[in-house]
Design a protein around this nucleic acid. Structure first.
Lengths: 215, 215
DNA sequence: CAATCAATATACTCACCAGTAGATAAAATA
DNA sequence: TATTTTATCTACTGGTGAGTATATTGATTG
């Protein structure tokens, strides 16, 4: 008698007949591919200078196909920005629930924050200025950025409370850190020799430690 | 005998007849007015979204008048950026020739740097990304920014040498400082309650001092 | 005074690009 | 098998905005 191996429901890994959920996943994948191509074009040329025709061409498809997956150009941008914001938000939540002093938690978060800012969607968050969005989207964008900022301020305040951070002005400290760690979204070259991890660590060390000597 | 006061060449302060040099100055003033209106529009809406028609309208003139004073839209932007860069360059030269430790000179320069970045033309330097420029202009732009960056690195290196700055990685220190002090070009509101001087001082103190407590 | 130059305007051209109409074909569903 | 749904295309519309052609007027110069 043959072994009972061949009776499993149907391997069908390469079948051209897709189930409903498979089709939904196909669609989601294509949508993601559009967003990735778009965010790269936006980052490379700026939102206004990047045309959806070019995005489509970079995927070997036509512009109406993009409209089949996304409503309009602004929605494409908004989705890209939201992906970046979600990554930042998640990092903030992780840091908030982590053990250690305020300084430790802040440091861990900032490392992740800096890395996200050197990634496609994170760069887009930094490089997208509110002027290009509709008032409605701009409001939501601002609110989500504010959440991240508040998380940072919270960590700084806790660090001050537990003595692991110097008694600085919380608001300006958060601005200064954000600036130092957002800036790589402008200058860091993903193709270059500097790895995001290293950049993040060096910048965070300098931003937290300062330049004034300690003794 | 009367005093010899009334014999001066001719006051003529309100004469409608302008000399050649006066006409040249008129022209230069109008050119400046165009640049100022343009840089504000660029800062408010972004280069691509700001049309020269709008810039002209904001001055109560027509677009061809702008072309009478400047060659094309890119040249308008380049002139704006150059004004900002010149301010930064001058600040760097002043700081380089000032007395005091490396730390002192760096600090003085950074205060000025941050203020320039909150001014019309300085903001434009920060907000203009190379992708919007022709390759030629982008090269020149990069070179001039590099000069400023090298001045900063020089001051840091000197500070390390004379012991007034901790032995940090010079390149990353300069990136971190630049980021922290460029960022206000994105968020500072000239109409708001925060005065550039105060912002600059707070940010510079945090950037140089860091967040880690000293004892 | 005639000829030229400077400053400005109106009214265009041309290219690009977001977004749409409508066709087609394949797959899914009834 | 007939009908509907999905994915995709080609070909368009409509608006916007950079840059130009050309006219006008007033001042400058020979």
């Amino acid at each position: 008698m043959p072994k009972s191996v061949a009776i499993t429901p149907a391997p069908a890994l390469t079948s051209p007949f897709r189930s409903k959920s498979e089709r939904e996943q196909d669609r989601a994948e294509k949508r993601e591919a559009v967003l990735l191509a778009a965010v790269r074009m936006f980052n490379a040329r700026g939102y206004h200078a990047a045309s959806l025709d070019d995005v489509a061409a970079s995927l070997g498809i036509s512009k109406p196909t993009i409209y089949h997956y996304l409503g309009n150009k602004e929605q494409v941008l908004v989705e890209c920005v939201n992906r970046g914001l979600s990554m930042l938000r998640e990092a903030a939540d992780v840091a908030a629930g982590a053990p250690g002093s305020g300084h430790d938690r802040l440091r861990a978060f900032l490392l992740r924050y800096a890395c996200i800012n050197m990634d496609d969607f994170g760069r887009c968050v930094i490089r997208t200025s509110e002027e290009v969005l509709s008032m409605d989207s701009a409001t939501r964008f601002r609110a989500r950025k504010r959440e991240i900022d508040e998380a940072v301020r919270g960590m700084i305040a806790q660090g001050i409370a537990d003595g692991s951070i110097a008694p600085v002005d919380v608001r300006f400290a958060s601005f200064a850190l954000a600036g130092a760690l957002n800036w790589p979204a402008r200058w860091h070259d993903p193709e270059g020799p500097l790895k995001p991890d290293e950049v993040a660590e060096k910048l965070v060390d300098i931003a937290l430690g300062g330049l004034t000597p300690r003794n």
